[in-house]
């Protein structure tokens, strides 16, 4: 049975790690989480990013966060990738299935997955 006490063990394990992570986040993945995004599947996309970023060992470099309506509701779920010194990349009509490829090729490999980019989908 899981219990709250297990969080104490997580705390002990993570104490060193958190200090290490601070300041090293250079990529930000932002998922649109307003009514428009939620209604068409933003929740599984977000959760898949959280999962895959950790699996790829990118937790120290990539932050996954949420935002409200981005303004182009017809292309939701929308995911924006911000990287210092680079132009913002907007992925449109996202699904959980597309996440692995973006994490692998873009976040890890530095190559934008152009077939999922908003401009190309339009």
């Amino acid at each position: 049975m899981k219990s709250l006490a297990e969080l104490q063990a997580i705390k002990e394990k993570m104490k060193g790690k958190v200090a290490l992570r601070e300041g090293s986040n250079d990529i930000r993945v932002v998922v649109g989480m307003a009514t428009c995004g939620i209604a068409v599947g933003a929740r599984p996309v977000l959760n898949k990013f959280v999962e895959e970023v950790d699996k790829a060992g990118l937790a120290g470099r990539v932050v996954v966060s949420q935002t409200g309506c981005i303004g182009v509701c017809q292309y939701e779920p929308i995911v924006e990738v911000y990287e210092a010194g680079k132009e913002k990349v907007t992925y449109a009509k996202m699904t959980a299935d597309k996440v692995e490829k973006i994490v692998e090729e873009h976040l890890k490999g530095g190559k934008v997955v152009s077939e999922y980019v908003l401009a190309d989908i339009k």
Binding site: K2, L4, A5, L7, I10, K11, K15, V18, V50, A59
Partner: peptide, 27 residues
């Protein structure tokens, strides 16, 4: 609030904590 008390400063959006919450709630 109970999670926060146990975690003593560790952010609640840490992957390990989110994973714990998922398993805890599923159970």
């Amino acid at each position: 609030r109970q999670m926060r008390e146990m975690l003593d400063g560790i952010p609640l959006n840490s992957y390990e904590v989110i994973k714990w919450a998922e398993e805890y709630l599923n159970e």
